[in-house]
Design a protein around this nucleic acid. Structure first.
Length: 576
RNA sequence: CGGUGAGUAGCGCAGCCUGGUAGCGCACCUGCCUUGGGAGCAGGGGGUCGCUGGUUCGAUUCCAGUCUCACCGACCA
């Protein structure tokens, strides 16, 4: 490909509205341009990277015997009403009406559509296992699109859906996809972790997320430093903490704490550690149901755990009025003692071992010290409702500690069970002629997001450093002063042909630009290998090969350079 | 959805307070010069100042409305 005939609108200045490096660099490198909030044009260079990644995904899906198809972007409301998600999915689902006033939505995911197809076509146990996938544009009307392709509203996604006769067969399909995902991200040369995850709005029984590690990641994940346990913080189970030195129960005391509304205020005011306090939170369901949740003062409540424990489809902090009506207290002095109204009290497991705690007294400017569960207040249920923190003991092994990372979620695999097949009556006949419900799994990969994550993980002050498997070109060929120097030009054209003949994708920089401009642009757009042809070294039959990632430079004969490039590319593409 | 801020040339910005219909840097075009890390000189093209309405002899500037965008927040008792 000749640079002069191609289209790579690079930009020197960093766009002011781009926060994260991948977004800045994709704009500067001329890979993407914004059309509207969270909606982008994929320019030629960006598209090449995306296609590269898509093809890796496609190869691994095919290898895992998933079957490619394509579903529509626009979906009828009826299917979503049938699955119950028309109301459940919320504002992220972009809804609209056609000319006949019939309701539709832009597909944010395709469980309904695929299940509908399968229930019409799959009738026998003989037709399973089967796994359909597509690579397609989805739309989710995000609250706050940001970070370029990382959290767009319109985005390209690979989604796959497996259909099996029973739960254990579904488990095998799930494992197969899990392994395929491991291969995909390994082939791309990414530093990633597979972690246990919450299932969110997709639903289902269990799931893993594939996280590319990066400081700018929107998710917090933990992994054990001793065993293989790794999980999203939303999901990570907390282990019981070691019990402190045993002391007897002390006398309950009421203490004035004027204007001390936060845990930090109260602990500082009383001169105690926040670990000896209990934080009281009140949550409400949309339908008005209210619960009280207790966690240790220095811990954070995990709303997802609480929501899942309660089996609620919605959770929010209770309003000031709701809180007053059940506790009689203003916010800041809440506690489980002397409740005005009987409400369910859920406490974190850690509280089981705590004695003589500081807690709100349900009266303005008043707290209790030496409060004890069972004597001074009652707890209905102890369970795991806190978020784990770095250094917590591992929930799976004896002596591991949890480490914290930030990650970008690039893939997610779910065991769906029969959630959608039941709702949409997707059934089959087993060998005995009995009707059974199909077991499903679904498996997503954010295509654009993975490319962005790769950039997030692979860049320097000069620009992007693409891993070879997803680089838009394998190698750039920079001809110095080519518009004036016919020898250099002829040699460059020849080298370009030689490289292309052995399957190397070459970006031949034949522009009428000064060398500095070419070097800067080629660094910025992140082509992994760069071959420079200049008159001086060419006179000695040499060219210069520079490795973008390491900066190492090799001065080689043309034939050596071609074979080295060939080897480097081959080596990178065969990694798995 | 709440808070804050911003919309002036393709991009980044100034001008606006103290109304008199626009300017800088980069990019772009032409020429000369230069050619191993975003050169220099000279000349040039490009803007209904987000949109609608109001005040005024006159509005990019003042006022009202509206749209768009960005950032922050929505783990706090």
């Amino acid at each position: 490909m000749r640079y002069s005939r191609y289209f790579i609108p690079t930009v020197k200045e960093t766009p002011s509205d781009a926060e994260v490096v991948s977004h800045q660099l994709m704009l500067r490198a001329g890979m993407i341009r914004k059309l509207a909030a969270g909606i982008y044009n994929y320019l030629p260079l960006g598209l090449r990277s995306i296609r590269k990644f898509e093809n890796i995904v496609r190869e691994e899906m095919n290898r895992a015997e998933a079957i490619e198809m394509l579903m529509p972007g626009v979906q009828p409301a009826e299917l979503w009403q049938e699955s119950g998600r028309w109301t459940f999915y919320g504002k992220e689902l972009l809804r609209f009406k056609d000319r006949k006033d019939a309701e539709f939505c832009m597909g944010p995911t395709h469980e309904e559509v695929i299940t509908d197809m399968v229930r019409r076509e799959i009738k026998s146990y003989r037709q399973m296992p089967v796994n359909f996938y597509q690579i397609q544009t989805k739309f989710r009307d995000e609250i706050r699109p940001r970070f370029g392709l990382m959290r767009g509203r319109e985005f390209i996604m690979k989604d796959a859906y497996s259909f099996d006769v029973d739960s254990s067969a579904a488990d095998s399909s799930y494992d197969r996809m899990y392994q395929a995902y491991m291969r995909i991200f390994t082939r791309c040369g990414l530093n990633f972790r597979a972690v246990e995850a919450d299932t969110g709005s997709i639903g289902g029984s269990s799931s893993h997320e594939f996280m590319v590690l990066a400081e700018s990641g929107e998710d917090a994940i933990v992994s054990c430093n001793a065993c293989s346990y790794a999980a999203n913080v939303e999901k990570a189970e907390s282990a019981q903490l070691p019990v402190g030195t045993e002391t007897g129960l002390l006398q309950l005391q009421e203490i004035a704490t004027p204007e001390m509304k936060t845990i930090a205020d109260v602990a500082a005011f009383l001169g105690v550690a926040t670990e000896t306090t209990v934080k009281t939170l009140v949550y409400a369901h949309e339908n008005g149901e209210i619960v009280m949740a207790l966690v240790r003062g220095d811990h954070e409540l995990n709303e997802i755990k609480l929501k899942n424990h309660l089996g609620w489809d919605d959770i929010q902090m209770a309003s000031e009025e709701q809180i007053r009506s059940c506790t009689g207290s203003p916010i800041g002095f809440l506690g489980p003692c002397d409740l005005k109204q009987k409400i369910k009290v859920i406490a974190d497991n850690v509280l089981k071992n705590m004695v003589n705690v500081v807690i709100g007294a349900n009266q303005k400017d008043l707290h209790f010290t030496n409060a004890n569960c069972g004597r001074d207040f009652t707890v209905d249920i102890f369970t795991d409702i806190r978020s784990v923190v770095a250094g917590d003991p591992c929930p799976r092994c004896a002596d591991g500690k949890l480490e914290m990372w930030r990650g970008i979620e690039v893939g997610h695999v779910f065991k769906l069970g029969t959630k959608y097949s039941k709702a949409l009556s997707a059934t089959y006949l087993d060998p005995d002629g009995k009707e059974q419900v199909i077991f499903m799994g679904c498996y997503g990969i954010g295509i654009g997001r993975t490319v962005a994550a790769a950039i997030e993980q692979n860049h320097d002050e000069n620009g992007i450093i693409f891993p070879i498997p997803i680089a838009p070109f394998h190698c750039s060929l920079v001809a110095i002063n080519n518009t004036k120097d016919a020898v250099v030009m002829a040699a460059s054209e020849d080298i370009c042909k030689q490289l292309e003949n052995v399957g190397i994708e070459v970006l031949f920089d034949d522009r009428d630009e000064r060398p500095g401009v070419k070097f800067k642009d080629n660094d910025l757009i992140g082509i992994p290998l760069r071959l420079v042809v200049g008159s001086k070294s060419l006179a000695e039959g040499k060219v210069e090969l520079k490795i973008r990632a390491t900066g190492e430079v090799h001065t080689l004969s043309i034939s050596d350079a071609v074979s080295m490039i060939q080897q480097l590319v081959k080596g990178a593409l065969e990694r798995d």
